[in-house]
């Protein structure tokens, strides 16, 4: 799980070159329960840090996924349409949601690294 940066809203981003892959954390998927649907952004859409980018739905709840950093959506994980359970089973792998072309890599500085995030989650009880 190296190279993952987390937000306090439980999204993660993994930087690959000038792009970043985004998903939600293991803690978040456990809180939400069995995922039944993921609404992904359109490719080409520009999102800004903290703005709504996707929606994840379980049977009884729907939650926004906020963009951890700003950028343009260049790819989405289409496989989630047929298999939303991937978010539960492999949140940092097959459960990824979309890829952004980062517009300001400086924004990463405001995010937590893995150890910091784990500490943060512990504080949530």
């Amino acid at each position: 799980m190296a190279g993952l940066w987390f937000t306090d809203e439980h999204e993660w981003v993994r930087v690959e070159g000038d792009t970043g892959v985004v998903g939600i954390s293991d803690y978040a998927q456990k809180q939400l329960g069995d995922m039944v649907f993921v609404e992904l952004p359109a490719v080409g859409r520009k999102v800004s840090k903290g703005g709504e980018a996707a929606v994840v739905e379980s049977v009884k709840a729907a939650s926004e996924v906020y963009a951890p950093v700003s950028g343009e959506v260049v790819e989405v994980n289409g496989a989630l349409a047929g298999n939303p359970a991937a978010v539960n089973e492999d949140p940092y792998g097959d459960g990824w949601m979309f890829r952004l072309r980062l517009s300001d890599s400086g924004e990463l500085a405001g995010l937590m690294d893995r150890a910091g995030y784990e500490e943060y989650v512990k504080g949530l009880g």
Binding site: V36, F37, E57, V59, P84
Partner: peptide, 11 residues
Amino acid sequence: RRRLDETLAAR
């Protein structure tokens, strides 16, 4: 019917 699988219904 006993408890129904709502996850399956939605997926």
